[in-house]
Structures are given as structure tokens and as C-alpha cells.
Design a protein around this nucleic acid. Sequence first.
DNA 1: CTGAAAGCGCTTACAG
DNA 2: CTGAAAGCGCTTACAG
Lengths: 374, 374
Amino acid sequence: MIEHSEAPSSPNRAQSDSGKLIREITDDGESPMEDTRDTSPVTMATLAKRVGVHISTVSRALQEPRQHTTNKTTLIIRELADQLDFQPDATASRLRTRRSRLIGVTVPSLTDPVHATTYEGIDKQALRRGYSTMLSMSANLDDRSPSRANSLIRSRVEGIIIQDTFEGDLLPATLRKRHIPYVMCLRKNDDEVSVAVDDLLGGRLAAEHLAAAGHTEIAIISPDSSVSTGRDRVEGFRRRMLELGTRIDDSRIVPAGFDIASGQRAAETLLDWPKLPTAIFASNDLTAAGIMFRLREAGITIGRDVALVGYNDIEISKHLPVPLTTIASPLHEVGARSLDTLVEAIEGRTPRSLKLTPQLLARESTLAFAPVNA
Amino acid sequence: MIEHSEAPSSPNRAQSDSGKLIREITDDGESPMEDTRDTSPVTMATLAKRVGVHISTVSRALQEPRQHTTNKTTLIIRELADQLDFQPDATASRLRTRRSRLIGVTVPSLTDPVHATTYEGIDKQALRRGYSTMLSMSANLDDRSPSRANSLIRSRVEGIIIQDTFEGDLLPATLRKRHIPYVMCLRKNDDEVSVAVDDLLGGRLAAEHLAAAGHTEIAIISPDSSVSTGRDRVEGFRRRMLELGTRIDDSRIVPAGFDIASGQRAAETLLDWPKLPTAIFASNDLTAAGIMFRLREAGITIGRDVALVGYNDIEISKHLPVPLTTIASPLHEVGARSLDTLVEAIEGRTPRSLKLTPQLLARESTLAFAPVNA
DNA sequence: CTGAAAGCGCTTACAG
DNA sequence: CTGAAAGCGCTTACAG
């Protein structure tokens, strides 16, 4: 039952392109029709009743807004939907179609700028491709078991991007058993499909930079060896150093976390050494920052007394008291490509792992030791 | 049809507390029963058929795990559910109960540590209270219109925490029309219910600190006056300064964004002034950091040549080249209390706005101007 | 093109 | 206590 009107009741409201096919209906009682002035949300049934068609017709009319429909009924339905600002219930369509258009993402924490940036890349690309993301933050769960993804599984995400994996992680096996596609992001895990930075190369770049300046007395500060990023960065660094003639003993590797505070603690360890190294490779920028802060307190000048290289190039790195030489990681890109890779898997293809290329950025923290052949 | 077994087929799998009431059924074809070796996820119907009860009995058995049930059927159902690692379909229960247990959160960006910390507080408290959160990041939408919450609305979130509101924001009105509860977080907006830091007080604290050191030539760098935080901090600062005898002219307020880069640009503006101020109040730490970096490049020593006060006390603030005096905000707490307040609204009560108290942290960036009466 | 029907996987009054 | 039925709001073959 449609009423065409010459004069819309609210002339100052924006009109849709399809014109004023039906009179405006507001939810504050202006409509002459019964049982519509309620508070419950508009559904397709509401629209169907209003327009006088079957609900399945409404559903079809609202699907994939093909630009140039001349079908009058479709236009009428769409205009009413616009007017009422109808938002279809995704819960219902998810249940019915068995496609949630939801991507789960597990992250360790978002206060770490590395993970926040990567996640932002994931979410942006997800939106672009018609998905929404749902987060599970380990930091808020203190649970590294596979159950950290349970809320995502219950929401029937179509796939999961695992940004917080570690050695011995049982989540991949759990998801495989459930036939839920997943991709490792940032960190790798055995033979699982992953999108990450080429951390072996990153480590090599750092080694070459320091070796070129003649360093042989070197310390490595590496956050958590149970995580692939730390492992690979250290391994690439040591191997390349060895190729270039310097063997770095295990005793010269100081473990640390991913934050400023643990960098400061690592620096204290270094200060206890009989002799300070001439160069330090920290496999994380925040850790490097902590080292810098603590050593400065001890009166040591970074870049002159000791060279320091970080990893990732987060925003503050170039602004530290001594601008930090670091290995720049394309974090946003890692996120976006993870999403693409996961979508491939969801669509039934067999994606391959991706290694994105890092780049050395030389700054003042290694300035006094500029490469001989630069 | 239940089969009790003396010897479970996989003795090395963890057993639930209720004992080995039924023989273990795996999904790799060991079960003698038909149509269960498929790939589709386990549903309550699966469990019901397996145990030989009606699906409604399964649903009841799995609800609110009352610890001490002696009901044998219930225990059997629960054990089977455990064994199969059954995760009920939240999509279905959301549709049926019309309660999603989902909270929407709109944020401007998560690479801003202020918003990341606040969101972490929200999510943690949500988990504690049985909710999950769903994000909508304006940074990934370039859309400040109410439609930025559409995906949350379609997912039928029970309420929304708005962390990215601004002057003229139409989202609150949209949500009110839809009867979706919401709370402003961090930022305020007219008479809307909000959980925020007392920014007027924060501004006053900064003013008192600088006034006590005798400053009268002051510049204010404020990120975006369309946002309540910037407005209130500046207003509190100016008012208190006026009470203490110093009028700060509009011409001494330099607009800026929320990041390091815009702080640097603001500093360039200051450098163009005929005379540098003796003190700067930046209503955001990252902005303050940018100012510090740029002024240092120009050979100006923060803390001696010019005093600098920031706002929020993010982690790096104490580690800047000159440790930053700032107004510490309880961001995690703001997040947690926002969630509580929203849940109050969801439960039909009428929550009131909350103002959390900030605190001044004096550091070296204002050291040379230590308060006379400190 | 549109209508009618069935069903996604749950939950919950209602009987028994 | 358990079973049977209805229904949440959609979508989609199937007829016409």
C-alpha cells in the first residue's frame, strides 16, 4: 500500500536519487499506519508490510545495489529503506547464509605500536574487501592457550589472523581441526602460512651496517626467543656477522621483552659487564629506546661511545634523544597482505607465505661509525 | 543412546572432572555412528542425537554451568561437549535471545597510544562482565558521519562507547533514535553521558604549575578545538591563568593535531614569532614531543630556555630527550568505567557522567622553573 | 519478475 | 526434570 505524495512532509530532508516515490514515514507517530510507532528496530518484514510486498522481495531488492535498476518496486523498497535508515540484521543473515563476513584477529596487545599498526592495516584492507574484523587481545586474557580464540570461533569468524603466535602454540592445530582458515601475521610458526617481514634479512642488514663500521665487540638484546621475530632477527644478524668474520658468543645475547622498561633492564645487565660492547643490536625499537635511556643516564653517549641499532622503525624512533638507526618494517603492508592471504584461503585457494622486505635506516645512533664504503 | 566404556580410546587426552561417562568420539572417523564424520561444525543437534536427548535438553544443560549439578544427563552432555570442544554458535543465540552481548566501540585510531590504552581498558572490563567488543576505527573509514557506526548497528551491538566524538557529531542523535544506549568516552559532547578526565582541572593544574614559576609569556598548542579534550584543557588553563593574573590572548593559541608531526609544525610557528614564549602548554603529549624535537633542532633547550607541559603521560613522555612535565590521565580507568557506565544504561538504569581526576607530574621540561612554594 | 516455504542454530515458555 | 513447538530475521532454491 503505497501513497505517492506531491509534497513530502519534511522537504528539508535529503532525498534519495530515486525520487519521492513514497511519502515520508517517521517513527514519531506521523504515519497513519498502525503498529509501526513502536520502539523495536525496523526489519525487512516492516518494509514488506509497508510497501505491500513479500519479505523475500524486500530481501532481493536490497541485495547488491545494482546501480541501474528500473524496477519500480525495487526503487520504492530502497527508498523506504533509506528513509527509515534501515540496517539489516547481520546476525540473521550470518546465521542464514553461514557466512559471517567476519575476520578474527588475535593480537598480544594494542599499546605496542608495532601490533597496532599491523592491525590497522588488516582492518583497513578487510573493510575494503567487505569484511569486518573482531579482536582477541591476549593482554586482556592472560591466556596463551588456543582458547584465546574461542570467542572468535563462537562468533563464527570465517578465518583468523594470528598475530600473537609463539613456539609451541597449539592454536593452529585447533583451527585446522575445525577447518577454520588462518594465517600467521608478523610472526612465523613452523610451516604455517605466514605474512611477515624477512627478519633474517633484517638481521643481516643490521650486521652489515655494524660490521662495515668495524665493530666486533657486539651485544644482542632480543625480546623473547619463543617468538619467531626475535629468533630470526638474531639468527640473521649472527650468521652474517660470522660470514664477515665476527663470531658472537651466546653469552653476549641478553634476553628482554618488547617494551621500554625491559630495554632499560637489559642495559643494566650490559653495565655490569666487565667491558661495554662497542655496538648493540636490539631486535625491537622500544627495547632499543629503553637501552638508550638507561645508558644515557649512565653517562654513555649513544652513537659515539656505543652504536645502537633497533628494529621496525616505529614513529618515535627518529625522534629519540639520539635518532635511532633501525630496520624499517612495512607493518601496515604486512597487515594488508595478511588479510589478502587469509581471504585467498577462505575462498578455497591455497595461498603461499609472503616475506616482505625490510630496509636499513641509518641515523645518528650509529653515526660515528658510518659504513666505510657508504 | 549412550555407550559407557571402561577404556577410553584416547587415554592420553585430558578428561573432564565429571569422569569418563561416555566413550570418546573423535571426528576422524573412529565413531561407529553414522553421519558424524563430516566436516561441518558440531551443533547442539549433534550433541542431542549423540546423547539421545532432545536438543532443548542440551541447550539447558550447557547454560550457566552451575557447579554442583548431580543431574546425570546434564553431566553426560557437558562431558561430550568438552570432548568435542563444542563452541555454541553465538550468531544463533544472539538472534534468538535478541541479546548480542556485544559492545561497539568507535575510536579515531589505535596507533595513538591514548586511544589504544583506553580501548584496552574497555575491552578488559567488557570481558570481565561477559561482553565482547567490536571496533569501528574512523581512521580506516575517513568518515566522521553517523554511518561510521553502521557496521556495529548491523551486528546489533547492545550499546556503543563513542571514543571519537567531536563538536557537531550526529552519532548520538542517531543512536538515541534507534534506542541504542551509548556513552561518550574520553571526550565529552554537550549533555551526553560521558566518562572522561576532568580536563578543566587538568588545564588548571598546568596553569598553576607554570604560574608558580612566574611565567607570563605563554603559548598554548591545542589539538583541534572541535574536540572537548582540547577545548577544556585550554579553557581550564586560561581561566586559571587569568585568576592568577595572566591573560593569554587568542593570538597565542596555536592549533595542532594529535601527533608528533603536527607538534613540530606548531613549533615552527612559534619560531616565527618575534619573541619566543617562556612557557608552552601543549594539550597532548605527542604534540608536546613534536614541539620539543623541533625546538631542540633550533638549538633551544627545553626546561631551561623554555618550559613545556604536556597532557596524558603516555609511556614515552618520561623518556623524551628532556623528560616531560605532564598531566597524567587514568586512561585505562577511563576505559573500564566507560564500560561499566554503558552496561548500567543497557540494564535500564540511568547512569551519570563521570569525571576522573588527573594529576600533575613535574619533570625536567619545567625543572628550571620549579614552583616557588614547592 | 514475485510469492510462499523452508531453514540457519539456537532459546524458552508451555505441557507433561 | 524433559520433549515438542515456535520463532528470532534473514536468504534462497522453487514455482508460477
